[in-house]
Nucleic acid binder design. Structure first.
Length: 262
DNA sequence: GTTGAGCGTT
């Protein structure tokens, strides 16, 4: 589904994909198209959505026809506030078929690079790095940390088994990003599930540790209240309206303040 | 009505 009414990906032969992150969940392709089209020829605007809910996943792909225009769009629109939220525009690194992408342009599958070769450019360009915030910088630094790769390669004795395990781990990692979606949906499901009228929050409270238990005696002790008064208070279901022991009403005028002082 | 790391569809 694209903005142009086409079903699938139009033509990614000579297009440059930009990844737009941090957009609001209400932002649609119609909102992004005019914004990006001002800086160049936009071939397609695609916003991945959830299969089940259909809600936006919070990021979009804007495909430009020319690299320079895409570059300009990145430079101009990165950090721009859209719909009350600051968006992040950068070149897409991965394609739909898990293809390697260089500056938004598909170059070759991953197999082109040797496994031991670490010549993979850490970052295409750091020109706009200064524009990034600390939050973005931290997130980027934390990303792409593949310590396990070196670890597995370190003890790679059985080539087949290691390769097979690597594939398995790779798939597991690939499914990791979806985990957040599951988690998000899980929260919704939990909420929907807990909307049962009979379900109450009381049961979980009385679990395992009970700090209130130790708090109660201390509280009563700190009150310095006579044991008789405490017993009567416990026995009386309405302690605030009652005046036990012929206590003056002035005492019950502000019972909360007495607690606040404590 | 909610959320906020990340890389994509008929």
């Amino acid at each position: 589904m694209s903005h142009f009414g086409r079903s699938g990906p139009p033509d990614i032969r000579d297009t440059y994909s930009l990844l737009v992150l941090n957009i609001t969940f209400r932002t649609t392709a119609d909102d992004l198209f005019p914004l990006f089209d001002k800086y160049g020829k936009v071939v397609d605007v695609f916003i991945p959505r959830d299969r089940r809910t259909g809600d936006s996943r919070g990021f979009a792909f804007v495909r430009y026809k020319y690299a320079d225009e895409a570059q300009k769009a990145v430079d101009k629109l990165d950090g721009r506030v859209v719909d009350g939220r600051e968006i992040m525009v950068q070149f897409a690194k991965y394609g739909p078929d898990a293809e390697k992408i260089h500056k938004g342009r598909i170059i070759e599958p991953v197999e082109k690079f040797k496994r031991g070769s670490r010549s993979r450019s850490p970052r295409p360009s750091s020109r706009y790095r200064d524009d990034y915030r600390d939050k973005d910088y931290r997130r980027r630094n934390r990303s792409r940390s593949r310590d396990r790769s070196d670890y597995e390669r370190h003890q790679g004795r059985d080539r087949d088994r290691d390769r097979d395990r690597d594939r398995y781990r790779s798939r597991s990692r690939s499914r990791s990003p979806d985990y957040r979606k599951e988690r998000r949906r899980g929260r919704y499901d939990d909420k929907d599930r807990s909307r049962s009228p009979y379900r109450s929050i009381s049961p979980p409270v009385s679990r395992s540790v009970s700090p209130r238990k130790s708090m109660s005696p201390r509280k009563t002790t700190s009150r310095s209240r006579s044991p008789a008064a405490r017993v009567e208070k416990d026995r009386s279901p309405t302690p605030k309206s009652v005046s036990p022991g012929g206590r003056p009403d002035s005492r019950s005028l502000s019972p909360q303040r007495s607690d606040a002082d404590e």
